[in-house]
Design a protein around this nucleic acid. Structure first.
Ligand SMILES: [Mn+2]
Ligand SMILES: [Mn+2]
Ligand SMILES: [Zn+2]
Ligand SMILES: [Zn+2]
Lengths: 153, 153
DNA sequence: GCGAAATTGATACTCATTTTCAGTTAGCCA
DNA sequence: TGGCTAACTGAAAATGAGTATCAATTTCGC
């Protein structure tokens, strides 16, 4: 049974409204895909989502997962991210803006926010005559767990 | 006639040494590709490099450009970057570390460095138990020229 | 319930990059 | 100066993520 948080219920409802507004159709496939996405813990690739989707309904096609994630991104429920290897990963868009710290050894992704960095980015852009619209920042390193493992040998 | 700066001569020589050390071979193709890369103003895609390469020697293949840019990256003469659209772009690695500010309208790329941001990144990583190894930061916005054009209409 | 418009799944396609492979060289050694 | 062999090359096929196509199916406003 799918665990549904208050916020995922909400997001699900917002997706439904979006479909109605845009005169798009509600389908069983879309429902499954959105549920799977909302249940997940974030930063899932299409492949991962597809794997979980097909456990519930093996007849759903890969293309439909792509199409639905695109819809979710358009309507502001999902954010599409591209980390080092480039394939798309999705996270729930409701959270505060944040950037990512990624372990180069185990792939762990930690989210963080640093207002002082954001302010300095704004300032750097302005100094160079730009009106800042957005940014991408990823920090890469070795997490505490991995360092511990290594030093033990 | 190719303009050769002191530093590009140097990089060319370093490439040659690298080939010798690794028991790889010096070829006319590699020479042309490295020259073209070193003459360029930076952030060139493989397609752009290939275009310039084939003016000097139309028989050089696409794959050889890829292969040579990979070599240059391995030996630390080129840095491979991936901006928003994902295709690889190369710049000379000799410069100081820097990040990029990119105009979303005209594509202009401005380089900048902000030590205070770098320090805060280091600090943020440490606070979360990571040993920082590197980062990727790109700022996206609208440059002064493009804003001027727009406001005139 | 009808029927137009949207959706679906399979599959073909794109685009950047990598791999394969048969033919061609570079460069060490006699 | 060859000769040899591993490295290199170009063309073409393969890859992998993502998109487009299309016939068959489904949704939903009337
Ligand atoms: Mn995140
Ligand atoms: Mn640069
Ligand atoms: Zn780790
Ligand atoms: Zn601009």
């Amino acid at each position: 049974m799918a665990k549904a948080t208050a916020s995922s219920d909400d997001a699900f409802a917002r997706f439904k409204s979006y479909l109605r507004e845009q005169r798009l159709k509600s389908t069983a496939q879309r429902d499954v895909i959105v549920e799977v996405f909302l249940e997940g813990s974030g930063h899932a690739s299409v492949e991962e989502l597809y794997g979980r989707v097909r456990k519930r309904n093996p007849r759903i096609g890969y293309a439909t997962v792509y199409r639905t994630m695109k819809l979710l991104t358009e309507c502001g429920i999902a954010d599409e991210r591209h980390f080092r290897n480039g394939e798309a990963r999705y996270e729930i868009a409701e959270k505060e803006h944040h950037d990512h710290l990624i372990c180069e050894r185990c792939g762990k992704i930690v989210e963080f926010e640093e207002d002082r960095i954001e302010a300095l980015q704004e300032q750097a852009a302005r100094k160079l005559g730009f009106e800042l619209r957005g940014h991408k920042m990823e920090l890469y390193g070795i997490c505490a767990d991995c360092r511990r493992k290594k030093s033990r040998g």
